[in-house]
Design a protein around this nucleic acid. Structure first.
Lengths: 331, 331
DNA sequence: CTGAAAGCGCTAACAT
DNA sequence: ATGTTAGCGCTTTCAG
């Protein structure tokens, strides 16, 4: 493997000149520039970027902390992040923590040890159970929740939930079941707040029997359907699911019991997976701008890394409430 | 930011000793080891890994080349890759190429310039349109096709397709439509080969009118349904879709026209997305071991990187054909 | 077991 | 415009 020194020797120049020929070609005479290029070609020289980064004291890398990369929402956010990072000459290191806080710590250490310049965290902030914020590591939260104590990009989860429930209410539903995420999950909290706010506004009393605690994964939607089904005449007439996955599998669960959607029971989701519009029936849901969240958070982080003071460090992006076929007026 | 030199000074030792205290603690006297630890704590010293990597001439990083990270199949493969990489102390750099060959080149350059030690490519090999294999960059292909000219991990696409079509045939279907990927896509080719093989075995003539060329994305399944629907009495009675996405949206398309699945038309998918079992009707499909493909390919790559000669460089993993509700005997 | 010192490949003063 | 040289932070001989 040839070094810059080999190139210099081959071209009959100094390493300094070669270095400049590479980084600032116009400061080198055309004649020597040509010599350098020939030498590079001849030796098949490739600069050692490890050395460059070391020398320049910056990794030009960001790490993306993600609880589960095989979750489509996260994957889409990452797609947005990568797009911006690439454009600005940064690489993205994937930090799939699989919900393990120790792994999270490992990745944070990467920026402390100069392997990365900053972090984008896709895991929502939980007080007392979070390694971020952390002195000396620049980070931004993407797709998180209210009250995140460091720069963040997200939607208004409570507001969106309230809107969904309001819609269900306007359809005449008064017994609205919810399939939530884990009780202490910040998204669960924000979205539950919206649910309660809508209920209160309508003067309907909160009924804890109408809440089924899931975990945002498919299987728990099935279980939720079983639970609600066995409530019999106390069964809800509409379901507000806190994500699409659980809504989808809950639909399947109800269908298995011979219930028709939306005739017998209305269902709404949250996130708007790509698949949701092709479902039978197509799912009414909240569409999160996942890619945009990724792009915006990458832009924010890069500004922070490069020492520019952004005039805003909390971005609340617009969402879309999309009404499809899984909801109908109460019979 | 403190360096190893600061620690040495603080501890009253040499940098060499501190270095050894970190990398090989047992070669340092307990007394000095303790001194080092105290100094590290006092100065809050973190080793500069950029420097370490530079010095050690290895990045301990692999790049994963992926056409589209927001595709669930890829995301699952990556999940498997990350799992193994992490375990072996490697980081994974995400290379979302968005199907742009120039971006692919960029990422390959990363291993040439020492930023990464190797590559896992999730884009299937296409002769004459591939930057890999490439002298001097160690790479493995994951989830690709037959005839990949470098180490690879995949399933038997042709075999799986043949199995699906055989099943449809056994149900009495003889006019079997296919929703393919782009015509020159290797997966399309392999899967089409399986389709044709099954037909030939059954003595059924291949009918080009029964092939609809899609692109593996949702929207093209919708279009395919329109196409097949307007074939009227020449309409197929079963559809073999080359992935789940297109199968799902095709179902929706047929449903929109009042066709019942599977009573009026059977449909099969390929890949087995998580959602597929919760569909209405649940989708009959081929289940690819995506995570396993990722894990195995990471293991392979790391062996290659570390100079061990693996005794096998082509892995064909088992798939699963799972029969659900979207297929039925012909009426 | 420990310290001194060289050097990885590159860049950036600085001098010419 | 070009060459010389010091040095980034770390590891690793090599002596002691």
């Amino acid at each position: 493997m040839s070094t810059i020194r080999d190139v210099a020797k081959e071209a009959g120049l100094s390493t300094g000149t070669v270095s400049k020929a590479l980084s600032a070609p116009k400061t080198v005479s055309p004649k020597n520039l040509a010599k350098v290029q020939i030498a590079i070609k001849k030796l098949n020289y490739k600069p050692n970027m490890l050395s460059q980064k070391f020398r320049n004291k910056q990794s030009k890398t960001i790490v993306v902390l993600v609880p589960d990369i095989a979750n489509l929402f996260f994957a889409q956010v990452i797609s947005g992040i990568e797009f911006i990072a690439q454009k600005k000459g940064y690489s993205v290191l994937l930090g799939d923590t699989r919900d393990d806080i120790d792994r999270e710590q490992e990745y944070i250490k990467m920026v402390e040890t100069r392997l990365a310049d900053g972090i984008i965290n896709l895991r929502p902030y939980i007080e007392g159970d979070s390694m971020l914020p952390n002195d000396g590591v620049v980070a931004v939260s993407a797709g998180g929740c209210e009250n995140t104590p460091y720069p963040s990009v997200r939607i208004d989860n409570a507001g969106a939930s309230k809107k969904v429930v309001n819609y269900l209410l306007s359809l005449g539903h008064t017994r609205i079941g919810v399939i939530s995420g884990l009780a202490n999950n910040p998204h669960t909290l924000d979205r539950m707040a919206g649910y309660k706010a809508a209920l209160e506004l309508a003067g309907i009393e909160f009924d804890p029997d109408l809440i089924y605690e899931g975990d945002f994964k498919y299987w728990s939607g099935m279980n939720a359907a079983e639970y609600f089904y066995q409530l019999e005449d106390k069964k809800p007439t509409a379901i507000f699911s806190m994500n699409d996955e659980m809504a989808i599998s809950a639909m399947k669960g109800f269908l298995n019991h011979g219930l028709r959607i939306p005739e017998d029971i209305s269902i709404t989701g949250f996130d708007d997976r790509q698949v949701s519009r092709y479902l039978n029936p197509a799912l009414t849901t909240v569409s999160q701008p996942a890619e945009k969240i990724g792009e915006r958070s990458a832009e924010l982080l890069l500004q922070l890394i490069e020492g520019k003071k952004p005039n805003q460090t909390e971005f609340v992006l617009p969402y879309d409430f999309v009404i499809r076929e899984s909801t109908a007026p109460i019979k």
